[in-house]
Write a protein that binds this DNA or RNA. Structure first.
Lengths: 131, 131
DNA sequence: TTTAGTGCAAACGATTTGCAAAATA
DNA sequence: TATTTTGCAAATCGTTTGCACTAAA
């Protein structure tokens, strides 16, 4: 791994991720950071998002549709995907439950389980209200 | 929804999905079905895979890397992603456990949870043997 | 002044789509 | 015959990459 050098663009991306509750796509990050750095390129956003996830300073969420989403909150937590509005929301689940699931899976399985990722599907409260 | 008409190509795709234990990508399906239908096009494979998943006759698995995988086994079950060989393996987990997790999630959440999908990460037995 | 990061544009891989021809009903 | 499905190729979408240039150490 190479040495890391400060960059204002990266700092701005980190700041945006840290303050938004959305789970933005790379493109959404790009649009927002562009307000501060009008010349920033999408490539730079992708490069930094990859760097941040590799460093463990952000999480990449693989959504069942389109592009990946990013989350500045690196605390272990789960996600909910609203099948109506396609938003991803946070969903807190007791870590003990997750460990229990991993244990139950390990019992039936012939390899080593390091971790698991659960995504929940359904309809969010906003969409329920509207219908 | 439009009416459905029989097609040999679709039948062949279904048959391949039903008999393989792998979780093939669209391209892998294409390669195999090509043995029976040398002229089949990738577009046709994609169209039929989408159709089959919409009909509930196949499952689409969104992998954390590259392209989607498909599974002819529509029974609810979980998947294990080997971070070494990148294969996806089946992993059976007691349905009661899954329902419990969904219930636990619903308790903390302000919407309706229809289902959940857990993917496990780790090293499969084949890769453990090799190392 | 050495090295890492940037902007740009071209390249890429996975998937979708428009269209005329072929297969099914 | 009417409608669906196909093969083909071009288009699209998200993402990565090569390169000359700029910024940070």
């Amino acid at each position: 791994m190479a040495n890391l050098k400060y960059s204002r663009q990266r700092e701005s991306i980190k700041h945006f991720l840290a303050t938004t509750k959305e789970h933005p796509t790379a493109d959404t990050v790009y649009t927002h950071v562009k307000e501060e750095f009008p010349n920033i390129s999408l490539g730079t956003v992708y490069r930094n998002l990859k760097l941040l996830t590799d460093l463990g300073e952000a999480i990449k969420i693989t959504a069942p549709d389109g592009g990946d989403r990013f989350d500045g909150c690196t605390q272990p937590h789960n996600h909910f995907y609203c099948t109506k509005c396609k938003r991803i929301l946070d969903l807190d689940l007791d870590m003990k439950k997750i460990e229990m699931i991993n244990q139950a899976a390990a019992d039936n399985f012939d390899g080593i389980i390091h971790s698991s990722n659960t995504i929940f599907f359904g309809e969010c409260s906003d969409c329920i209200k509207k219908s």
